[in-house]
Every structure is written in structure tokens, then in C-alpha cells.
Design a protein around this nucleic acid. Structure first.
Length: 213
DNA sequence: CGCCAGGGCCATA
DNA sequence: TATGGCCATGGC
């Protein structure tokens, strides 16, 4: 996994800092991480807009499940995600809905707790840890896998194997984890949806160099 | 019209 | 550990 920082620098130069996650509050970020599972942001935004100003744990806790599902309907999988939002909120309640209390806990412990929440898997957990809780865990999504494999990297099979391998080859720095993932998403949306390789791609020469090997 | 998006759960072998 | 079925809307 050499050259990851080179890719990071190319993307950062090409797109500039992304300043993620797009959310008003930490709780909105956490909820958004669930809503965006296998779903476009366009649909997630519709769901978030339906909350008006009620995307807060106190509302999620008390609103009837069926009503919650109706609110988030545009995000798809709304029955499952309504349950997931309830479960996330139950977890958060252990900390009295106090973000500062959560942040005091060790990152590995928090990851275990989040993975125990039904509806939160590895990617969602790592997104929440990195973007809401200031605990750096490199997020592995379909875009990350797609871009890296197109660049010629041989990726391990399991999520955590990929994550640990990437983490071992970049500085353990929250800002870099934050920006790198956001930059990969930005890049994938522009260039890696259908086209396997294209000359306008900022990583074109990197792709070419690795393909020659 | 069919495909798929910043996944995850569960059953099965 | 690793597939396969399922969940569901909306943009293209």
C-alpha cells in the first residue's frame, strides 16, 4: 500500500479541502450516516429536510416508529433505518445526549459500542467515529475499494483488513482521515462511476503507471 | 425501462 | 468466512 499519501496530495490539489461531514450538528451527522446507507445524498437530503428542526435525539426518542419511518421515507429502506435511528438514539442516551461525554471514551470502545447497535455496521461506525466523535478510523466504502483497485492495489478481503492496511500506510491524523475519505468520494462521483480510466482524471498518470506494472 | 446509490442484517453451508 | 436474499426511494 505504498503511495497513498501521493494519491491524497493529488486529490487535495485537484479538489481542495472538502470540509466534511455535511451536517449542522454531530447528531445530524450520526443520523445522516445511517440514512445514506446504500442511498444517494439527494434522497438523504429530502429525508433530513422532512425533519425540519427536529433531527435531535429528544425527538427521535419520542416519535412513534411509524411516523419516523414516514419522515425518512425518501431515503429508502425506511423501516429498517427508522429502527436504526431509534437504536442509535438509545446508545446516545447512555451518555445523556452529551457529545463531550462520548468523546472522553476510548475510540476502540466506542467502535465496539456502535457495532453493537443494530443497523450500524463497520462503515457507518467508522464514519461516525471519524466525523462526529473525533476518533480516527479510516472509512472503507465502495468508492474507496473501487478507486484503489483501479489504481492497481490488491485489496484484502475483509473490511477491517483493508482498513488496517490503509491505516498502516498513512499518518494517524484525524484531519487526513477526514479529508482523504471525502476526497475519494468526490473523485469517485466525478470519474469512477462508469469510466474505468480517463485522461482528464487527476489520478490518470498514477493509474497508468500502476497499470504498466 | 433497468440500473444503482457514500450498507447491513439474517439465514445458510 | 463467504455468499445470497432482502430492504426501497428517486434520479438517470
Amino acid at each position: 500500500m505504498e503511495g497513498l499519501m501521493g494519491i491524497y496530495n493529488l486529490l487535495l490539489t485537484a479538489y481542495g479541502p472538502r470540509k466534511w461531514w455535511p451536517a449542522q450538528t454531530a447528531f445530524e451527522m450520526m443520523g445522516g450516516a445511517i440514512l445514506t446507507q446504500n442511498t444517494t445524498w439527494n434522497n438523504v437530503n429530502k429525508a433530513i429536510a422532512n425533519f425540519e428542526d427536529k433531527l435531535v435525539p429528544e425527538f427521535i426518542e419520542t416519535v412513534p416508529l411509524e411516523e419516523l419511518a414516514e419522515i425518512i421515507r425518501p431515503s429508502g429502506f425506511y423501516n429498517q433505518k427508522a429502527n436504526s435511528l431509534k437504536a442509535l438514539t438509545e446508545w446516545f442516551k447512555k451518555y445523556a445526549y452529551d457529545l463531550q461525554k462520548v468523546k472522553k471514551v476510548d475510540g476502540e470502545i466506542l467502535r465496539e459500542e456502535l457495532l453493537a447497535v443494530k443497523g450500524i455496521g463497520r462503515e457507518t461506525a467508522d464514519s461516525i467515529l471519524t466525523y462526529a466523535l473525533d476518533k480516527p478510523f479510516f472509512i472503507i466504502d465502495t468508492y474507496t475499494r473501487r478507486i484503489l483497485s483501479r489504481l492497481g492495489y490488491e485489496l484484502p478481503k475483509t473490511y477491517d483488513q483493508v482498513r488496517l492496511k490503509i491505516e498502516a500506510n498513512i499518518p494517524k491524523d484525524l484531519y487526513i482521515y477526514n479529508e482523504f475519505h471525502a476526497l475519494l468520494v468526490e473523485h469517485a462521483k466525478r470519474y469512477c462511476k462508469k469510466k474505468p480510466l480517463c485522461a482528464e482524471c487527476p489520478l490518470y498518470f498514477t493509474c497508468e503507471a500502476r497499470r504498466q506494472e
